Simulated scan of single mutants.
Amino acid sequence: MLSKAKTLQAVLEMQKLFPDAHCELDHQTPFQLLIATILSAQATDKGVNKVTPKLFAIYPNAHALANSEEEVVIECIQSLGLYRNKAKNIRLCAQQLVERFNGEVPRTREELVQLAGVGRKTANVVLSVAFGLPAFAVDTHVERISKRL
């Protein structure tokens, strides 16, 4: 475990190495980022960015997606792997957003991970990218490389 001083030093060094680091998922709103991040599981950001323009044109917010027909959602995202399960999850997530949060994306990890299709990594992406809150999105690749280092 690194001390606070060493952690800060490591973060500053990473900022020097990667000054233009940013989220590769195309999005305009926290809702769109949330849905795109859920869709990115077992898929590339490039693949997700190909399907989200059509998806978000039809369903621009949680209320619209919550009232969607599953087959239309599937049609929008079928080029992604696991598209049936993802369609189910993003529709349920949107319904939960409407029921619990008036259609708004919550700003806490605890609330986010209660949504369908949202785990710790997805929650951390949304918190850091959409809301500028301190959170690290650590996937299996980052964990593996970190352990090697």
Rank of each mutant, 00 (worst) to 15 (best):
L127F: 08
I35S: 12
P60V: 10
V48F: 07
G119C: 05
T37H: 03
I35Y: 09
N85I: 03
H63S: 12
A123G: 11
A94N: 14
G119E: 13
I58N: 06
D20W: 02
K16R: 13
G103S: 10
N89G: 04
V98W: 00
T52N: 12
T44C: 07
A41R: 08
A123S: 15
T122F: 02
D45F: 00
D139V: 00
S40A: 15
G117V: 14
S40G: 12
P19Y: 03
K88P: 04
I35T: 09
N67K: 10
F31Q: 04
A64M: 10
P30Y: 02
G103M: 11
H141M: 13
K88A: 14
L55W: 10
P30W: 08
V113H: 02
K86C: 04
D20A: 12
N89W: 02
V113C: 05
D139H: 01
P19N: 08
E70K: 15
T108Q: 12
K50D: 13
N85L: 07
V126F: 00
L33I: 06
E71C: 00
V105N: 09
V105H: 03
H141A: 14
F101L: 11
A62F: 00
E70G: 00
A64V: 08
L80F: 02
A87C: 10
Q32W: 06
K121I: 15
D26S: 14
L25N: 15
P19V: 06
A137E: 08
T52D: 15
A116I: 04
Y83H: 14
V72Q: 09
R120Q: 08
K86W: 09
L34Y: 04
I90Q: 03
T108D: 10
R100K: 14
F56I: 09
Q96M: 10
A41Q: 11
E111F: 02
H27Y: 05
E24C: 02
F31N: 03
F131G: 05
A21R: 11
C76L: 12
T37C: 07
R120I: 13
V125F: 01
I77D: 13
A137W: 04
D26G: 05
V51Q: 02
F131Q: 05
L92D: 01
